[in-house]
């Protein structure tokens, strides 16, 4: 993949790629409309440094054991579920937090070393560290004198 060369790089293509996701992370009351969220869940931030790509998602109330992170080739999948937790003897005044299964697939901009991907959850934030494949890392070239 061509390296981006300016402040505006082509993630439009990436965004379109992600529309092929599957999700039913929305409750029976039309979760999508209530908080202005899109039907894409979870929203992702993806950034990089020289050696790694990073992907982050906010997954409050989701147990680490209920989240699966898969890397196949250049495709990152985050899937899982948030339990509904119907409470007996309760009537809901407001229900904005989605429940159910979700699955999000995103095409990564560079090759990664799938064997060494790490994921951790902290206070409802999932952070995935994806080491770039050797070929995708910047190389320092010695200047001959």
């Amino acid at each position: 993949m061509a390296r981006r060369d300016g402040p505006f790089f082509p993630f439009q293509q990436l965004r379109e790629e992600m529309e092929k996701l599957v999700t039913d992370f929305f409750g029976p009351q039309g979760y999508a409309g209530s908080a202005g969220m899109s039907r894409t869940f979870p929203p992702l931030n993806v950034w990089e440094d020289g050696d790694n790509l990073f992907a982050e998602a906010e997954l409050p109330g989701i147990k680490p054991e209920d989240v699966d992170v898969l890397v196949v080739g250049r495709e990152l999948t985050i899937k899982g579920k948030r339990a509904g937790g119907e409470v007996p003897e309760a009537s809901y005044h407001r229900r904005e937090r989605g429940t159910g299964d979700f699955s999000r697939v995103v095409e990564l901009p560079v090759e990664v070393d799938a064997e060494h991907v790490q994921a951790r959850m902290s206070n409802g934030v999932l952070t995935i560290t994806l080491p770039k494949a050797a070929a995708a890392r910047p190389k320092k070239v010695q200047v001959q004198v």
Binding site: F11, T40, W47, E58
Partner: peptide
């Protein structure tokens, strides 16, 4: 930080 994707703010 330069983002490939930035779908939510922090």
């Amino acid at each position: 930080t330069r983002y490939w994707l930035r779908e939510y703010g922090v």
